[in-house]
Design a protein around this nucleic acid. Structure first.
Length: 462
RNA sequence: GGCGCGGUACCCAAGAGGCUUAAGGGAGGGGUUUGCAAAACCUCGAUUCGUCGGUUCGAAUCCGACCCGCGCCUCCA
């Protein structure tokens, strides 16, 4: 398979360090608030990547960090008059609820920054000993002039960096404006940890360097995040880790593009964001959100709007209706050789498309083409019992990657609705269509859609 | 100022030199089916890929210029 590696700026054939095993690290949430759907775009992309690797036969070890100490979490705790831990625990819980809602599969480890303070301090200590870091007052900084390859990920020439407009008060003493904090000295009213290098708290980048390699080794295979992490976050991780261990940090860097709303990036600071919870409250099906986030290639900007959301709903409905038809329709005994042929064709295209840098459009195209071909057979009554089982299991197999189809669940209706359906059947038999249509309208208003088929009436939820 | 991404039908979105006089999905028109619907099927739908030049036997795909939108360079997925 091939992936676009930010490091080389081109698609590369993927080769894992150990055969058929992949070590994957993805940048996780900073738990100071609910995540918005722009954040979830990244997590859904990473989920697709992971499921694709598994589909291709890899065993994936996935680690996602949780940033539970930084400026924002501290600020939030202070303003809420709570402890850091109280605040971060709350949003960690919310985060897990949200990824479950979106059917994002769980990582193997979710290390928390605050539980790896000692390792971070140790790493800082070594970096200073080796001459890559220096101390100013109680803080430590990484000296980017000491790492000749600095800028190789972001393609930035360190001499051409433009100093940021916002310089924190505690960073006035840096040698170079772009040297970054490894360790921030203890400040009044801020949480701190005692350590061999003095009291304080870790800088932002050091946690990922420490936790990724602790669980995955160095180098490891794939590191993901949003494009906005390329610089400075990932660039700095590379600098720290490669200077620390004198070896390559990560083989493949995959970054997903932003989710755009009304032409600009969705972000907390701009205030133009929706949390997952906002959308669920509006009655939007989480699987439709997942479909929308999934259906645009990860390296392209995704334009979020309620119109594209509605389009995703319809597209997904086409697949769901198809699955329902196969599960609920009655078939005659037998087998149509065309069905297996279509399944094989589609399966091959599907896997190949995803293996080509996660070309989701092509993958979905093969699924939709498959749906149309089978629907055509269905309309001619050329699908049989054996076929329907094969089709359903093929769809489920592909859905192990996509994760968008509903789980098998007992379809139970309230007695009152069942009764209405019976009444309507009776009315139809008596050709009392006025009454039958009236009942159908009533049920529609209650969220139940009725469809009359060869096998009798069938219902679905709106 | 530096670096980077993108502009394909009404909307979303593939394609990256000939297989394509451009996939797939949504919306829309017409038809089949249906008591009527719904779903499904058939069918219509860009002679054209931001603009203008160039390279080539051949370009949406390569090169150049320009226009427009966006991102990063500062916390951000």
């Amino acid at each position: 398979m091939e992936f676009f590696n930010t490091l080389s700026g081109k698609k590369e054939i993927f080769k894992s360090i150990r055969p058929k095993k992949v070590s994957l690290y993805t940048c996780g949430p900073t738990v100071y608030d609910y995540a918005h759907i722009g954040n979830f775009r990244a997590y859904v992309f990473e989920d697709l990547l992971k499921r694709t690797l598994i589909f291709w036969g890899y065993k994936v070890k996935h680690v996602m960090n949780i940033t539970d100490v930084d400026d924002k979490t501290i600020k939030k705790a202070q303003s809420a008059g709570k402890s850091l831990r109280e605040v971060t625990d709350k949003y960690i819980e919310a985060f897990f609820e949200d990824i479950d809602t979106l059917n994002i599969s769980r990582a193997d480890h979710y290390p928390r920054a605050t539980e790896h303070i000692k390792e971070m301090a140790d790493m800082v200590k070594v970096l200073v000993q080796k001459g890559y870091g220096y101390k100013k007052n109680g803080s430590y900084y990484f000296d980017i002039s000491k790492f000749k390859e600095y800028g190789k990920l972001a393609k930035i020439n360190r001499n051409e960096l433009r100093p940021g407009e916002r310089i924190e008060s505690d960073e006035y003493d840096k040698k170079n404006a772009h040297d970054f904090a490894l360790w921030k000295e203890k400040k009044p009213d801020e949480p701190f940890w005692e350590s061999e290098i003095g009291p304080g708290r870790p800088g932002w980048h050091i946690e990922c360097s420490v936790m990724s390699t602790k669980y995955l080794g160095q180098p490891f295979d794939i590191h993901c995040g949003g494009v906005d992490n390329i610089f400075p976050h990932h660039e700095n991780e590379i600098a720290q880790s490669e200077c620390f261990a004198n070896k390559k940090f990560v083989n493949y860097w995959l970054h997903c593009h932003h989710l755009i709303v009304n032409g600009s990036k969705m972000s907390k600071s701009k205030g133009n964001y929706y949390t997952l919870r906002d959308l669920i409250k509006k009655g939007i099906d989480p699987m439709v959100i997942r479909y929308l986030l999934l259906s645009t290639h990860y390296r392209k900007m995704l334009n979020f709007s309620f119109e594209t959301l509605a389009q995703s709903d319809s597209a997904l409905e086409r697949i769901r209706d198809f699955l329902r038809e196969l599960k609920e329709r009655s078939f005659e005994q037998g087998k149509n050789p065309l069905v297996q042929k279509f399944i094989d064709q589609t399966g091959a295209e599907f896997a190949e498309s995803l293996g080509d840098d996660l070309n989701i459009s092509m993958a979905l195209k093969s699924v939709f083409n498959f749906v149309r071909k089978i629907n055509k057979l269905l309309s001619k009554n050329q699908v049989y019992t054996e076929d329907s089982k094969l089709i359903v299991s093929a769809l489920k197999k592909w859905d192990e990657v996509l994760g968008i189809l509903p789980k098998d669940e007992d379809k139970e209706l309230e007695a009152s609705i069942k009764e209405k359906i019976d009444q309507r059947n009776k009315a139809r038999k008596e050709k009392n269509y006025a009454l039958a249509d009236k009942i159908r309208d009533e049920l529609y208003k209650q969220g139940i859609i009725l469809e009359d088929t060869q096998d009798g009436v069938r219902w679905k939820k709106r």
